[in-house]
Design a protein around this nucleic acid. Structure first.
Lengths: 213, 213
DNA sequence: TAGATTGTTAATCGATTAACAATC
DNA sequence: TAGATTGTTAATCGATTAACAATC
C-alpha cells in the first residue's frame, strides 16, 4: 500500500518518541488520550500530533481522543516494530559496546545478534550475552543467517572499507555511526547518525541564547 | 552580528561534516577545493554546498574554489570549535563511557572533563583519564568550574529528575541522549539525540526499498 | 445540547533546487 | 578569451501551522 511511502522523515522520527511515551504512561488506568495532552507532554503542536498519528492509519474519536492500547499497537505495526529484525554490529569499541548493551532495541524493531571486530583481545568475549566474533566470519554468517542490517561503529579510518565488505556480503541497510560519508551504490540504504552534528547544534543554540563561552 | 542567528538547522548539522571531510582530505598538496567536488564526495547538491559555506562568511573564487585551510579555519570559528567548552557527563553507563572515550569531541568544540554517577562501584574509577565522581558533588563542581553544558546519559527512569538537578546547579545546555522528553523551562537549551528514531528511519527505508523483513 | 477534539483543507513558513549573472 | 565556478535571486518542494467543519 502507498501509505508507508509517504511519511515525512521528521514525522517518522517522532513516531518512536510517541511510542516510548505511550508505553511509559504513568497512569495505566486511563483508556484514552488526546492529541493536545500528548503534544503538551512531548512539546509538540497538537495539530501536528493529530497529523503524525494519522499517518499510521489510527482513528481517534472527537472529544474522546485515541485508545492508548490501540495507538501503541498501530504505531508498532506501522513502524514494523512488531517484528524484530536481526542485525550485526561491526566494530566492538566503546560505542559498539554501548549499543550492544541497549536492551531496548528489541522493543524498537531490531536485535543485535552478533558483533564483529579485528581485535583478537575482543574476539571470543561477550557483551550483554552477544558474542564478539572475528570479522573474517562476517560473510559466512551474513549469508547463513540472511542478515540485512549492519551497524557500523568502527574507527573512521576503516569505515568505508568495512562498509563495502558489508555490502558485498549481502547487507542491505547500514546504520552508520561513524562521522564518515560512505560512498555506496544507491541500492544500499544508509542511515547516518553524527554525534558531532548534535554538538554543533547545541553549541550554536547556546551561543545564540547569549551563554558566554 | 545577525549572521549566526539565521543558519538553518539542517545546514548547521552539515557544517561539522564538511569540517571532518576537509580535515581528512587525503591530498594535502592541493590548496583549493570547489563546491562540486565537495558535493560529489559528500553526496550533496553543489549549490547546497555553496549556500552552506556562505553561511560561515567564507568567500570562494570563481573557477578556483575555496582555499582549504581558510575554509577549515572559517568553519571552526563559525561553529565555535576554536574554543573548547568544558562539559560534564551524568550517567556513566555504557553509552556514557562510550562518549567519554570519544577523543574527538575536543576537535568539535567540547571536552568532557568529569563524569558523575550514583553507582559506588563506578565512583572513583576513570574512563579515558576522566574521573567518575559521585553525583552529590555535581552542584559544587558545576558552580566552581562554571560549567554550562551537561550530557545526560542516565537510565530513562531518572532522566527528568537528573535534568532538573542539572538546571538547578546552573547548567544551561543539556545534550539529552535518553529517549525521554525533558520538561524544562524555556531558558534551558535541550538537544535531543534519539537512537530509536534512527532505527525507525532505517527500517522504514528498508521496507520501502522492498527488503523483505 | 454544548463543547472539546478529531480530521481535513488552506495558508504559511522554511529549505532545497534551479536559473543565471558575475567573475576569475 | 573561454569556460568553470561562485554568488544571488527566483522557483519549487515539503513540512508545519492555522482555520474550520464534522462529530462524538
Amino acid at each position: 500500500m502507498a501509505l508507508t511511502n509517504t511519511v515525512p522523515e521528521p514525522a517518522l522520527k517522532r513516531l518512536p518518541l510517541y511510542l516510548q511515551y505511550l508505553r511509559n504512561l504513568a497512569d495505566k488506568s486511563k483508556m484514552n488520550i488526546s492529541a493536545p495532552v500528548i503534544g503538551d507532554d512531548l512539546g509538540y503542536d497538537p495539530t501536528q500530533v493529530v497529523k503524525d498519528l494519522a499517518y499510521t492509519g489510527v482513528r481517534g474519536k472527537p472529544r474522546v481522543g485515541y485508545n492508548i492500547y490501540e495507538l501503541i499497537y498501530t504505531i508498532e505495526n506501522f513502524l514494523g516494530f512488531n517484528k524484530v529484525n536481526d542485525a550485526f554490529l561491526i566494530g566492538a569499541g566503546n560505542l559498539g559496546k554501548a549499543l550492544l548493551s541497549y536492551q531496548d532495541f528489541q522493543h524498537f524493531g531490531m536485535k543485535i545478534i552478533a558483533a564483529f571486530d579485528v581485535d583478537n583481545n575482543k574476539v571470543g568475549t561477550q557483551v550483554n550475552s552477544v558474542n564478539i566474533l572475528h570479522i573474517d566470519k562476517l560473510e559466512d554468517l551474513v549469508k547463513r543467517l540472511n542478515i540485512k542490517i549492519g551497524i557500523l561503529t568502527t574507527p573512521a579510518a576503516c569505515a568505508q572499507k568495512v562498509a563495502e565488505q558489508m555490502h558485498n556480503c549481502g547487507i542491505r541497510g547500514i546504520w552508520n555511526l561513524t562521522p564518515v560519508y560512505l560512498k555506496m551504490p544507491p541500492e544500499v540504504i544508509i542511515q547516518n547518525t553524527s554525534m558531532y552534528s548534535n554538538v554543533a547544534v547545541l553549541l550554536n543554540k547556546l551561543n545564540n541564547a547569549g551563554v558566554s563561552m
